[in-house]
Every structure is written in C-alpha cells, then in structure tokens.
Computed example of a mutant assay.
Amino acid sequence: MNQLNLNNYKQEIADLYTRRSDKYDNSDWHWRIANRLVEYGQVNTGQQILDIATGTGHCAIAAAKLVGSSGKVIGIDIAPGMIAQSQKKANILGLNNLEFLLADAEDIDFPENHFERIFCASAFIWMSDLVKSLLLWRKFLKPGGILGIQAFAETAFVGGVITQNILKKYGISYLMSQPTGTVEKCQKLLQKASLELIEIKV
C-alpha cells in the first residue's frame, strides 16, 4: 500500500485511526450513523459513489449493496489500518463494485461531474479547511447530485467542549464543533461552499 506524504497534523490522525482500526467496529454507533447518511442520500442502482474518510467502510458498504453491479463505490481514507479493515470486509461480503484507496480527502483528483453521491460520515471535522474541502468535493459531484455530511452537535462530546475552552484560553485553535455544532453554523458553512438546496436533518 502506498504511503501518503502527510503533514504532522494529518499523520497524527492517520496513526490514531490505524491504531483504532482493529476495534473500530466493536460499537455499532458508526454503523448506525453511516446507514442513516446513506438513507438520506437516496442511493439508487447504477450510481457512482464516493465515500470520504470511509473508516472501516460503513457508508461505502451500505452504498455498494444499493448501487448493484452496474454502480461503483470508491471509499478513501488517510489511515492504512482503516483501508485494510475495509478491504477485508468487502472481500468477505463479495462486493466487487467497491474499491478502497489510501488518500488524503483534501488532496484528491477525480473527474469533474463524476459522482451522483458523495458522503462523509464522522470525519468532516478533521479536515484542515472545511470550506475548501467542500468546494473540492463539489467539483466531483454531478449536477443534481447529493453531497451528504454528518456533523456533531456542540453538546456531542462534553470532554471535547471542555478541552476546546481550555485551549482557547491559551490561544490554541481547536476545530471541534466551532463551524458545525449547530444547524445555523452548518447552514452558513454549506452556503459558503456555494451548495444549493441545503437540507439539514437533526
């Protein structure tokens, strides 16, 4: 598997999730989030799907079962351990319409107007530049396609909120929940990325 040339911030994320990859499926929480996102995304037979920060492939696998043999799903992740786990699951399930790639979601190159659906579950907040990421991904989306992102509420992680407040006192920026923690924040963020027909479900 090819190694990515990552900065320190992204390498830490890749290492963290590779360490977590063996036990990532012990909880069904990620699976439920992914299924809900794919359900909202109205995936149909024959579609081309991109799953960003696929983890152990929850969204990608759910989508691959829906698009059938005439469709194709690509799942990308920054962590080699996650990609290995995803591929193992796809092999066991015999999903030949599914491909997993080691890739940095903020530095990817796909054909423009290629995917009917693009998903990002549980990982959007890790992107270095949220608006820039959305603008990049939107280029790969076909006209009328759906970009579906799951974001966390401000109250989702009490420990994270406390950490954020402490770091703020020392002038350290910590992204969690700042741009995505409320419906209003999500609305503004998606509008900045020039997305249309925005729908936010809680």
Rank of each mutant, 00 (worst) to 15 (best):
residue 99 E to C: 12
residue 199 E to P: 00
residue 6 L to E: 04
residue 81 G to K: 10
residue 114 H to F: 15
residue 167 L to N: 12
residue 101 L to N: 10
residue 146 I to S: 01
residue 79 A to H: 03
residue 54 T to C: 13
residue 125 I to H: 10
residue 173 S to I: 11
residue 90 A to C: 06
residue 9 Y to F: 13
residue 171 G to R: 07
residue 113 N to T: 12
residue 180 T to H: 03
residue 61 I to P: 07
residue 44 N to G: 07
residue 199 E to I: 11
residue 90 A to R: 06
residue 177 S to L: 06
residue 79 A to D: 07
residue 128 S to W: 02
residue 68 G to A: 05
residue 78 I to W: 00
residue 28 D to N: 11
residue 80 P to I: 02
residue 39 E to W: 08
residue 184 E to L: 10
residue 100 F to Y: 14
residue 32 R to A: 09
residue 22 D to R: 06
residue 67 V to S: 01
residue 74 I to M: 01
residue 126 W to R: 00
residue 132 K to V: 10
residue 112 E to D: 13
residue 107 D to P: 03
residue 81 G to Q: 02
residue 189 L to H: 07
residue 106 E to K: 09
residue 120 C to A: 08
residue 197 L to H: 15
residue 93 L to G: 01
residue 165 N to V: 04
residue 35 N to S: 09
residue 185 K to S: 09
residue 96 N to I: 05
residue 163 T to R: 12
residue 191 Q to I: 13
residue 162 I to W: 07
residue 189 L to S: 04
residue 35 N to D: 09
residue 133 S to L: 05
residue 119 F to Y: 08
residue 3 Q to E: 12
residue 120 C to P: 06
residue 92 I to E: 14
residue 151 A to I: 13
residue 47 Q to L: 07
residue 198 I to L: 06
residue 195 L to Y: 01
residue 45 T to M: 09
residue 2 N to P: 03
residue 62 A to G: 01
residue 134 L to C: 09
residue 169 K to L: 14
residue 69 S to D: 14
residue 60 A to S: 13
residue 172 I to P: 08
residue 138 R to W: 04
